[in-house]
Amino acid sequence: MNKRIAPYYWMTVPAVILFFVFMTLPALQGIYYSFTNYNGFGQGYDFVGFKNYFNLFQDDNVGNAYWFTFKFAIVVTILTNILSLLIALGLNAKIKIRNFFRGIYFLPNILSVLIVGYIFNYLFSNVFPIWGQNLGINALSTNILGSESLAWIGIVIVAVWQSVALNTILYLAGLQTIPTTLYEASNLDGAGKWREFWSITFPLIAPFFTINMVLAMKNSLMVFDQIVALTNGGPGRATQSISHLIYTGGFEGGEYAYQSANSVIYFIVIAVISILQIRFLQRRETDL
C-alpha cells in the first residue's frame, strides 16, 4: 500500500466501522423487526409481512402524531429562518461590540435541549402565570402547557429560541461573502434598503437559505427532547410527535416491531421531504 495513502485508511476505516456498528446495523435490525411481531424482549416472534405497515395507516394515534409533527415543523422552520435572517442582518451592520452579540445569540445552541426544556417548563408553569396575574394579562395567567390547544405553541417558542442560534451563524457566514462594492454601487444608483435586500443580499445568500431551510425542517420533524421536557406528549396526545410516539410505543408500550415499521416510514418521509426541499430551493437559486 502506498505510504501516502495508508494514513487515510487508518483514519477513515475506524470511523466507518463505528458508523456501521452504531448507526447502520441498528437501522437494518429495525427494518428486519418491522416485518415481525417482536415485542422488544425475549426470543420468540413470528414474521407477519407488511401487516404492521398496513395497520399504521389505520391508526388514529399515528395520524395525529404525523399531523402535529408536520404542523410543528412548518411553523418552526418559517419562524426560525425569518428571525435568524433578521438577527443576522442586524449583527452584520456596523455596530459596536457586534462580536459580543454574536456570542450571546449563539449561546442557546450550546445548551442542552433537555435542560432548556425543563427551565421553560418551570417558566410556563410558575413564573409566567404569576406575571400575568400581577399585570392583569389573561393570556399569561394560565399555564399554556396544560391546554390541548395551546401547548404546542410553548414547544414552538422553545424550539425556535434554540434553533435560531445556528441559523443566524450560517446566515452571517453568507453575508460575509457579499462584496461591499455591490452595496456601494447600489447606493450610487439610489436603491433603498428593501431593494438592496431583494436584488443583492437575498440572491447571494440563497445557498445558505437552502441549507438553513433543510436543516430547520429536518430538525423540527425529529423533535423529541423539547416534548419530553415540556409536555411528554400531553395533554392527552395533543403534542405527541412521531419520534415521541415511536419511543413510548416501542420501548414502553410493547410495540417494538410495530413502531419499527413506523420508524421506517418516518425515515422515508424525512428523506423525501429533504430531497424535495433541496431540489426546489436549488432551482430557485438559479432563478434569483
Rank of each mutant, 00 (worst) to 15 (best):
Y247V: 08
F19T: 15
K71M: 04
G254R: 06
T80K: 13
Q29S: 06
R98V: 14
Y266F: 15
D225T: 04
Q58E: 00
L288E: 09
Q259Y: 02
S199T: 12
A257C: 07
G42E: 14
S274E: 06
S147N: 15
T69V: 11
Y118T: 14
F22H: 07
L123W: 03
V269I: 14
R237S: 07
P7K: 11
G192L: 07
L140K: 12
S199H: 11
W161T: 07
Q259N: 13
G49Q: 12
G250F: 00
G90H: 10
D287F: 12
L135C: 11
V264Q: 01
Q277T: 09
Q133W: 06
F41Y: 13
Y247Q: 04
L85R: 05
F251L: 13
D46S: 13
F20T: 15
A15I: 15
F209I: 13
I31K: 05
S260R: 01
K193T: 14
L245P: 00
A165W: 09
V269C: 01
Y171A: 03
I115A: 13
I110Y: 09
V160K: 02
I153M: 10
D225N: 10
T201N: 04
G249L: 03
W161C: 09
M217N: 11
F100N: 02
A271H: 06
I246H: 01
G90F: 15
W131P: 02
Q176P: 06
L28I: 15
A229M: 09
Q259V: 00
F19D: 10
M11L: 15
S112T: 14
K193I: 12
A261P: 00
K94H: 14
N61I: 06
A27V: 04
W194M: 12
L204F: 01
G42R: 10
I17D: 09
Q240I: 02
A229W: 02
A173R: 07
L276V: 14
R283C: 00
S260M: 01
N64M: 10
G253E: 01
Y258P: 02
N187D: 13
Y256S: 02
N262S: 09
S141P: 06
G103C: 12
P108Y: 04
I87P: 05
S163Y: 08
N52R: 01
V113I: 14
Y32F: 15
V264D: 00
